[in-house]
Structure formats: C-alpha cells, structure tokens
Amino acid sequence: MIRVVLPAHLRALAGVDGEVEVAGTTIATVLDGLEARLPVLRGTIRDRRTGRRRAFVRFYACAEDLSHEPVDAPLPGPVVAGAEPFMVVGAMAGG
C-alpha cells in the first residue's frame, strides 16, 4: 500500500487524520485510489474534466519533485514498498 500525505486543508475536507493508504504503483493509480476512497477530493488535486494536476498542487516522494513526471511512470521503489510516503503538497504563490 502507498502511504499518502495530504496537506492540512485536504485532510480537513476529507475528514481524515494523518496518512491515507491506497493501492497503486503510479501517480495516476494512486490518485485514482485516493479519489475512490475519498470522493470529496475529486476535482481538488486534478481537474475533473481533463484529469490534469491542478496548477498549485505538487507531488513529492523520496525528496524528489514528481509533479512534472508522466502520471503513468512508476513510483520510486521505497514508496511502493511503503517505506516512504507519496506527498501531495499545496504550492505557495504570491509576492
């Protein structure tokens, strides 16, 4: 199982505390599992119509930014093994 860490505002929206575990081996399958388990998150991480990552959302795993990786690329081994989390992070903007 993949350990997913969500930002505080999405945890509050979904009514979860701490990490969420879902099955998957790619960004796409993890997000599919997350949205299936927590339907209230549909449209918050990726656009409902296009399925593309929202502009101010980033994905990190094993100290790497995976935000611009293909969604069907395999996740790093430690993430798939459950040793490291897959993190969904709200990007900061402003000046």
Rank of each mutant, 00 (worst) to 15 (best):
M87K: 14
R48E: 15
R58S: 07
A81W: 06
R46A: 10
V16Q: 04
I27A: 10
A28M: 08
R37F: 05
L34N: 00
V40E: 02
A83Y: 02
D32C: 10
R53F: 05
P76Y: 10
E84H: 12
D32H: 14
M92V: 15
P85R: 06
L66A: 05
P70Y: 09
D32L: 07
R52Y: 12
A14Y: 02
E35V: 13
T44D: 07
G15L: 02
R52I: 07
D47R: 03
A83W: 04
E35A: 13
G33E: 13
R11N: 04
V20Q: 03
T44V: 02
V71G: 11
A36R: 05
L13K: 11
L31T: 13
P85W: 02
R53Y: 07
P7Q: 00
I2W: 09
V22Y: 09
E21F: 11
E35L: 14
L13C: 01
L13H: 08
A73T: 14
A12V: 03
F86C: 08
A14I: 00
E19R: 03
E69T: 10
M1Y: 02
L38E: 02
V16D: 01
T26R: 08
R37G: 05
A12P: 01
G15C: 03
A8G: 03
A23Y: 05
V79A: 07
T26K: 12
L66D: 05
V20S: 01
G94C: 07
V16R: 02
A14D: 00
R54K: 12
L38R: 04
P7M: 00
A83H: 05
A73R: 15
G33S: 08
R54F: 00
A93I: 09
R53V: 01
E21L: 09
E69H: 14
